[in-house]
Design a protein around this nucleic acid. Structure first.
Length: 780
DNA sequence: GAGTTTGAAACT
DNA sequence: CAGTTTCAAACTC
C-alpha cells in the first residue's frame, strides 16, 4: 500500500538515494525503471539500510519495520539506541525475529500485526496457558483476545498518526521501533517464561552493577518516570527507557490479557502513536505508565508506575516471593508475575501453591528447572546433545538463573529464552508442577540470598537447607563439588575457591561435564533413585524395590560400616546391595548380605528400633524413615545423615517423600536452591529498591493470587501431587520422586531408568514430561 | 573453627 | 581393572 506517509518517508530516503551514484549505477543496470514513489517499504528499507548498519536484523521481518513507523515517534524522545543498548536488546530482537509473523505487507498490514503481537503473541502466550490447562488461563485468553480486538481498533488510528510523521523517524528511532515491536512481541514471550524474567532482571542487575545502562528503575515504576525524563536528557539511560517501554507495554498487554482490561489499549496506542514528535513521548509515556497501572486487574490500587515495576519485579522475584511462601507478600508477587505474563500460566500454578495452606506452598518455578537440573550432568549433557524441548528448557532455566545471579551473558540468556519459547507451554506446565512440588526447598534457597529469607530459614530451622560447596582445588569442576555434581553453578553461599563452576565459565563447565560423563555416563546421575510412583510411594511401593536395589554402584565403605554419611548408600537412604563392596556393612536401610529388611518399611521399623538404641547417626535415619514424624527429624536434623540438605529433607518428609535424602549430589535440592539463590540475589537487590512497592504489590498480588489460585484451583491442579509439599519432583530421573519416606525409602539407582515409574500422578504430568525428556540422557 | 577421618573421584 | 592419589565432605574435638 502506498500511503502518503510512506511516500513522505521514502521521499527523503529516495531523494538521497537517487542522488547517489549507486542509484544511478543501479538504475542504469536495471531494466526496470525506478519509480520515485517507491513503495514505502522498499524506500524505507533502502533508506534505513543506507543509514543503519543494524537495520538488517530489524528488517528481517517487514513487520518490524512497519511498527517502527508507528512507534518511532514515541520512542525517539526517550533514546537513541546505543550499541550496548542494542546488544542488551539483542535477545529480544532475536526472538522477535524468530517469532514475527510472516507479514509481507509492510505498512498497512504491519500496523495491525504489531498490535496482535502486543496483545501477546498468540503463539507464545496462548501456548503456555494451554499448557497450564487451567480455567483461569482459558478465561484469560478469552479476555486477551477481546482486548486484542479492541487494541486493533485503537491502533488503526494511531498508526495513521504515526504514518503521518514518518519523516521524523530517525535511524535510531527506526531501530527503536523495531525494538518496540519486536520487544513487545518478545516481551510477551519473555514474560511467559521465568527465564525471560530473569533475563530482564539480569539486565537490571547488570545495570546496577554498572555493566549496563539499565536501571532498576526499569523495574520500579516509581523511579521509572524520573529516569525517563533523565533518559531524554541523557542518552545513557536510553536503554532503560526502551526497556521500560517494552516492559510496560508488555505488562499492559499481559494484564489486559489476563484481566481483559481495555485501558491499556489507550496507553499502548499512545506510546505507539507517539508520532514523530519527540515532545509527546515523555509525558505520554508517563501517562501510559500510569495507565499501565490500570492494567492491574481487579481494581487493585497500585500506582501504575509501581505496578509496572512490580510486575517486572514480580517476575523476578517470583522465586523469592515463593520462597517466602507463607508470607503474604509473596503471593502478591507471584500474582504480579502472572499478570505481567500472558503466558505464565505456570506462575499461576505457582500461585496456587501459595494458596495452599501447606507450609511449603512456595511454588518455585525453579522446581521444575531444578528437577531438570537435578539430573545435573545428564541435563547438562542432554541439553547439548538432546534437542528435546524439555531438556532445553531445563538448561535454559538453569542458565538463566545463573545468568541472573551473575554475570550471565546475554548471549546465554537469549538462547535460553528462545528455547523456552519453543518449548512453549509444555514446559511451563511441568515447571509449575515441579514448582508446586518442590516449593519448600526452593523457597529456602531463594531466601538464602536475602537476610530476611535467611532469617526465615533459621526460624524454620531450615537454615542449613541446601549446602554449598567449599571446593578449593577442584575448581568446582569435578564431582567432588556438590554444586557441579548437581549440575548447578556455584553461587554466593559457596565457599569455594578458584571456582570455575560459574556462568562465566559455562563452556568450561559443560566441557568438563562432558568429559566426566564420557568417562562415566552415570557420573552425574543420581546415585540413588527412588522408585517412582510418587503417589503410591508411601508404603505401598516400598516393597517393590528392595533397599539394596537402588544404589547405582554400590558403596565401598570400610570403616563407616555403612552407618554414616560417608556411605553413599546410607546417605541416599538406600540399603546396600550386592554391588557394594563395603565391609562390615550395617546399613540400616538394608545390608549387603540382605540381612536387613528388604522393604523400606521394615527398614524403617528396624531403624527406629536401632535408632533408639544406636548412634545418633542412625537417629537421623529414623527421623527420615518416619515420614509422620517430621518434627522428630527436625529436632534430629543434626543427625540427618541421609540428606545433606536438611531443608530438602524436611520438605521431602513433609511431602511424603521419605527421606530419601538426595544423595549428595542431590541434584534437585542443590539445583533448586541455587536457582533460587540466584533469583533470590536478584530479588534481594530488587527488593531493596522495590520495598516501597511491596505494599501495593502485596495488595495486588494477594488478591490476584487468591483469585488466580481460586481460578486455577488448588495447587493440586498443577501439582496434583497429593502431597501438599509437592514433592519437588526431582528431576527427571525421578530421583526426587522418591516414594515418600513413608513408603519406604525406596531408592532406585539413578542409573536405572526409574522414570517410567515416575508416572506419578499428580505431579506426574509435569514431572513425567520432564522426566521423559530427560530419560534418554539420564538413562544412558 | 581446626583438625581428623572417610570414601568417592580422579589419576596412573 | 587395580592401585594410588587427590579431594572434599563428614565427623570429632
Amino acid at each position: 500500500m502506498d500511503t502518503p506517509e510512506r511516500s513522505t518517508v521514502g521521499a527523503a530516503a529516495i531523494s538521497k538515494f537517487e542522488d547517489s551514484p549507486v542509484f544511478n549505477f543501479i538504475n542504469s543496470l536495471s531494466p526496470i525503471q525506478m519509480v520515485k514513489s517507491i513503495d514505502s517499504v522498499q524506500s524505507i528499507q533502502a533508506y534505513q539500510s543506507l543509514n543503519f548498519a543494524s537495520i538488517p536484523s530489524i528488517f528481517t521481518s517487514p513487520h518490524a519495520n512497519t511498527q517502527k513507523d508507528s512507534k518511532l515517534s514515541a520512542r525517539n524522545p526517550f533514546k537513541e539506541l546505543s550499541e550496548q543498548e542494542t546488544s542488551s536488546v539483542t535477545c529480544l530482537l532475536n526472538e522477535a525475529l524468530v517469532d514475527p509473523p510472516d507479514d509481507s505487507s509492510i505498512v498497512p498490514t504491519n500496523l495491525p500485526q504489531p498490535l496482535q503481537f502486543d496483545g501477546g503473541s498468540p503463539n507464545h502466550s496462548t501456548t503456555p496457558r494451554h499448557g497450564a490447562k487451567t480455567d483461569h488461563v482459558q478465561s484469560n485468553l478469552n479476555l486477551f483476545q477481546s482486548s486484542l480486538d479492541k487494541r486493533k481498533s485503537l491502533f488503526a488510528p494511531e498508526r495513521e498518526i504515526g504514518e503521518n510523521h514518518p519523516a521524523n523517524q530517525e535511524n535510531n528511532e527506526v531501530v527503536g521501533l523495531d525494538w518496540t515491536n519486536l520487544m513487545s512481541d518478545n516481551v510477551d514471550d519473555l514474560l511467559i517464561y521465568n527465564l525471560s524474567i530473569e533475563v530482564d532482571i539480569c539486565r537490571a542487575v547488570d545495570g546496577k552493577q554498572g555493566l549496563g545502562d539499565v536501571n532498576y528503575s526499569d523495574f520500579f515504576s516509581s523511579k521509572y518516570a524520573g529516569e525517563i525524563n533523565d533518559s531524554q536528557k541523557t542518552q545513557p539511560d536510553v536503554l532503560s527507557a526502551p526497556c521500560v517501554q517494552n516492559v510496560t507495554e508488555n505488562p499492559h498487554v499481559l494484564c489486559d490479557e489476563m484481566f481483559g482490561k481495555e485501558d491499556d489499549m489507550d496507553h499502548t496506542p499512545e506510546i505507539l502513536s507517539g508520532g514523530p514528535n519527540q515532545v509527546v513521548p515523555i509525558d505520554h509515556i508517563q501517562e501510559n505508565l500510569n495507565e499501565a497501572s490500570d492494567c492491574i486487574p481487579l481494581g487493585y490500587k497500585v500506582d501504575s508506575q509501581q505496578q509496572r515495576g512490580m510486575r517486572r519485579r514480580c517476575l523476578v522475584f517470583e522465586a523469592a516471593g515463593l520462597s517466602k511462601k507463607n508470607t503474604g507478600n509473596v503471593k502478591p508477587r507471584s500474582a504480579i508475575s502472572i499478570t505481567s505474563k500472558g503466558k505464565m500460566a505456570s506462575y499461576d500454578s505457582h500461585l496456587n501453591p501459595l494458596k495452599t495452606p501447606s507450609p511449603r506452598v512456595l511454588p518455585g518455578i525453579g522446581l521444575h528447572l531444578n528437577a531438570l537440573a537435578t539430573t545435573s550432568k545428564d541435563r547438562m549433557v542432554t541439553q547439548d546433545t538432546l534437542a528435546s524441548g524439555k531438556q532445553l528448557i531445563s538448561m535454559p532455566c538453569t542458565i538463566g538463573s545463573f545468568v541472573s545471579t551473575g554475570q550471565k551473558t546475554e548471549s546465554k540468556s537469549q538462547p535460553v529464552a528462545k528455547d523456552f519459547v519453543h518449548t512453549g507451554s509444555e514446559f511451563q506446565e511441568p515447571q509449575v508442577m515441579n514448582n508446586e512440588t518442590s516449593p519448600p526447598t526452593v523457597l529456602e534457597n531463594a531466601e538464602e540470598s536475602s537476610p530476611k529469607k535467611k532469617r526465615r530459614k533459621l526460624e524454620n530451622g531450615e537454615g542449613e537447607s541446601c549446602k554449598r560447596c567449599s571446593c578449593k582445588k577442584s575448581k568446582c569442576l569435578k564431582l567432588y563439588c556438590e554444586c557441579f555434581a548437581a549440575g548447578v553453578y556455584c553461587s554466593e553461599p559457596c565457599a569455594c575457591q578458584g571456582c570455575f563452576n560459574k556462568p562465566i565459565h559455562e563452556e568450561t563447565v559443560l566441557s568438563t561435564r562432558k568429559q566426566i560423563e564420557s568417562r562415566n555416563p552415570l557420573a552425574f546421575a543420581p546415585k540413588v533413585i527412588r522408585t517412582s510412583e510418587t503417589g503410591q510411594e508411601l508404603g505401598e511401593v516400598s516393597d517393590k524395590t528392595p533397599a539394596s536395589a537402588r544404589h547405582k554402584r554400590g558403596c565401598n565403605c570400610k570403616k563407616s560400616s555403612c552407618l554414616k554419611k560417608y556411605c553413599e548408600c546410607y546417605q541416599g537412604g538406600v540399603g546396600c546391595s550386592i554391588s557394594c563392596r563395603c565391609e562390615a556393612c550395617k546399613n540400616a536401610f538394608g545390608r549387603k548380605d540382605g540381612s536387613t529388611p528388604g522393604g523400606a518399611e521394615e527398614i524403617e521399623h528396624g531403624e527406629e528400633e536401632k535408632d533408639a538404641h544406636e548412634k545418633k547417626e542412625e537417629m537421623p535415619d529414623d527421623g527420615q524413615q518416619n515420614a509422620s514424624v517430621q518434627n522428630h527429624e527436625n529436632h534430629s536434623s543434626e543427625n540427618l545423615a541421609i540428606t545433606p540438605f536438611k531443608a530438602c529433607r524436611q520438605l521431602v518428609k513433609l511431602s511424603y517423600f521419605s527421606s530419601s535424602k538426595p544423595p549428595r549430589p542431590s541434584a534437585p535440592t542443590g539445583y533448586f536452591s541455587r536457582l533460587y539463590n540466584t533469583q533470590a540475589l536478584l530479588k534481594s537487590e530488587a527488593m531493596l529498591l522495590c520495598n516501597k512497592f511491596e505494599n501495593h504489590v502485596n495488595n495486588f498480588c494477594d488478591d490476584d493470587t487468591a483469585n488466580i489460585l481460586k481460578e486455577n484451583g488448588s495447587p493440586s491442579n498443577v501439582m496434583k501431587t497429593s502431597s501438599p509439599n509437592g514433592k519437588r519432583i526431582s528431576p527427571s530421573n525421578g530421583v526426587g520422586f522418591s516414594p515418600s519416606r513413608k513408603g519406604g525409602r525406596k531408592l532406585i539407582l539413578r542409573s536405572i531408568p526409574s522414570f517410567p515409574s515416575l508416572s506419578n500422578v499428580d505431579s506426574d504430568d509435569a514431572v513425567n514430561d520432564t522426566t521423559n525428556s530427560f530419560n534418554p540422557s539420564t538413562l544412558t
